[in-house]
Design a protein around this nucleic acid. Structure first.
Lengths: 251, 251
DNA sequence: GAGAGCGTTCGACAATGCCGAACGCCGTTC
DNA sequence: GAACGGCGTTCGGCATTGTCGAACGCTCTC
């Protein structure tokens, strides 16, 4: 691929560093991690600060992400077609299933949540939009993995005692997802919670996202830890409806 | 100020263009707007696409914001202190007032909404986090203007027949806000709606944000279009509480 | 079929970004 | 209190990188 602009790539790497980890980093630490001169990093940070993508804490001198990114992030949501087509189906799915609904796509080897409808009750919930979830340990992620050339990381993180961490076992699980046309995680990402997801296809039949419901394992699954067929049906119905909307939009 | 990295500034300008307007732009249009060569813009877009900040529509060739920005945007929210300190007071204010609550700060000469609590009822509402609002035509904006060296744009946009568009009138209005310690907009931004806001101060007493409630004008105001004193009190209480939290965090 | 405008590519060139070195400041240790 | 280490910042020389004009192929319109 022809050359890219090095300083923009470096700036993006700095922003990604700031988005991961503790959120605030010193210049020297960034320079060490990226193997760049401190003067180089300083020039990039000064520019990012100038455009509002980074802010510097006056006391500690540390850097953090800036406010301008919030507007860019939500502007992305406004034009994200997967999300705009899914919104109409996500609320009814939450109402019908009684569970929280999330829609995700792949970003940087993980699931990026682009829409989230709260479970329709009064419990305390936090909005997951913008969150990155693991591919191998979530229902959304398994579905996205199953239909992509995407390879999961060689080293799979364990989140609970039920997380699949062996590559062979994951491959077998993904085969099951392809056969069934839906995926699940049962206490593989969060203890006490389970989820079911199905693929959303775009123009030409490619999988561009996934939609799923999640909740307490005893509500999502029967006594033998299998997702309730009723819920699976609801999710697949919603996935098909969104897929139709996405396909139709391209005609 | 010492030199900044030109190509990063240009990349940021392109991203801001894509965030405004229709959301999808052609390369030639971006080049014209920024007075850059098409080859230059192409190199920058290719790099932004490579890092996930931009996507290209295969059919039309047009460019749009990319998924990576969503994660950066929400990561910013996670570390935004104004927001994290405000969250505890925003829900009670919504419950107490029965209205929607928003918290905002200044970005690019406008109000950036960093937190939004829905009005506690079942009406359809859309989440405003990440949205940019005008300074001169909103309660949040007037409060932020009143306590900043920030100058509003010379040319003030009109949103309703009640929008203040004369600089002198706005200056007088901001003087009133400073005197009263809170601001309001009564059908100045949205017909049929009114809002009340109060300043949130950070360490050293500087105004770093504003918190406000908004709703139908007949619920926010009395019959003479004056905000109800009870609501004003609730908002000011919440603003003081958040300000204390922000001040306390720096000790 | 001609023309206009698009996105893309390429190579020459000079402008810019990079980095080593040095600085002042701050916190820690002795 | 002095010394030390590591921080963020600044600066200037240099060569690498980014820029841009020109050309291309494609698509759409007339």
């Amino acid at each position: 691929m022809p050359g890219t602009v090095q300083s923009i790539e470096r700036a993006a790497a700095i922003l990604r560093m700031l988005a991961g980890g503790p959120g605030r980093l010193g210049l020297a630490e960034i320079a060490r991690s990226l193997d760049l001169a401190k003067g180089t990093v300083h020039g990039i940070l000064r520019t990012l600060q100038h455009v509002g993508f980074v802010e510097q804490d006056r006391g500690s001198g540390h850097y953090q992400l800036g406010a301008a990114l919030l507007h860019l992030g939500t502007s992305y949501l406004d034009i994200n077609e997967l999300r705009s087509r899914s919104i109409n189906w996500a609320d009814p799915l939450a109402a019908r299933s009684g569970e929280a609904v999330r829609i995700g796509t792949v970003l940087e080897g993980r699931v990026l949540v682009v829409h989230h409808v709260f479970r329709p009750d009064d419990t305390f919930q936090t909005l997951d939009i913008g969150t990155l979830l693991p591919l191998h340990a979530t229902a959304l992620g398994k579905v996205l993995l199953a239909y992509r050339a995407e390879r999961p990381a060689a080293d799979l993180d364990r989140y609970t005692h039920r997380t699949v961490v062996a590559a062979k076992e994951l491959a077998a699980e993904l085969e099951r997802v392809r056969e069934a046309g839906w995926g699940a995680d049962v206490e593989e990402y969060t203890v006490g919670e389970a989820a079911v997801a199905a693929p959303i296809r775009g123009y030409g039949g490619l999988v561009v996202g996934a939609i799923g419901v999640s909740g307490l394992v005893e509500r999502i699954c029967d006594s033998r830890y299998r997702p309730q067929p009723k819920l699976v049906g609801y999710v697949r119905d919603a996935a098909r409806a969104v897929s139709r909307d996405l396909g139709a939009a391209r005609r």
